[in-house]
Computed example of a mutant assay.
Amino acid sequence: MSEPHGPLRSYGRLKSRPIKPRQAALMDTLLPQIRAPAEPFDPRALEPDAAEVWIEIGFGGGEHMAAQAARRPDVLVIGAEPFLNGVASAVRHLDEQGLSNVRIHDGDARALLERLPEGSVDRVFILFPDPWPKARHHKRRLIQPDAIEALARVLKPGGRLRFASDWADYVDWTLERFLASPHFAWPAERPDDWRRAPADHVTTRYEEKRLGDCAPVFLDFVRR
Rank of each mutant, 00 (worst) to 15 (best):
88 A>N: 06
15 K>L: 14
43 P>N: 07
214 C>N: 07
141 R>M: 06
10 S>C: 11
24 A>G: 12
5 H>D: 12
35 R>H: 07
109 A>F: 03
35 R>N: 02
135 A>S: 13
57 I>R: 00
120 S>H: 08
60 G>D: 01
123 R>H: 10
121 V>E: 02
26 L>K: 03
117 P>M: 15
64 H>A: 08
8 L>P: 08
37 P>I: 06
221 F>S: 11
79 G>E: 00
119 G>T: 11
220 D>H: 09
140 R>H: 15
122 D>L: 01
141 R>D: 07
162 R>E: 04
112 L>H: 02
45 A>G: 01
179 L>S: 10
17 R>C: 08
65 M>G: 02
210 R>W: 01
192 D>R: 13
185 A>C: 14
111 A>K: 05
73 P>T: 10
82 P>Q: 03
69 A>V: 03
176 E>H: 14
24 A>E: 15
191 P>N: 13
213 D>T: 09
63 E>C: 01
73 P>I: 06
100 S>E: 10
87 V>L: 01
42 D>A: 13
76 L>H: 00
168 A>T: 09
110 R>G: 14
39 E>L: 09
5 H>P: 02
87 V>E: 06
171 V>R: 03
137 H>Q: 10
214 C>S: 13
57 I>V: 13
42 D>E: 14
182 P>R: 09
78 I>Y: 01
218 F>K: 14
172 D>I: 14
23 Q>P: 05
22 R>F: 13
171 V>I: 14
23 Q>C: 12
184 F>L: 10
182 P>Y: 07
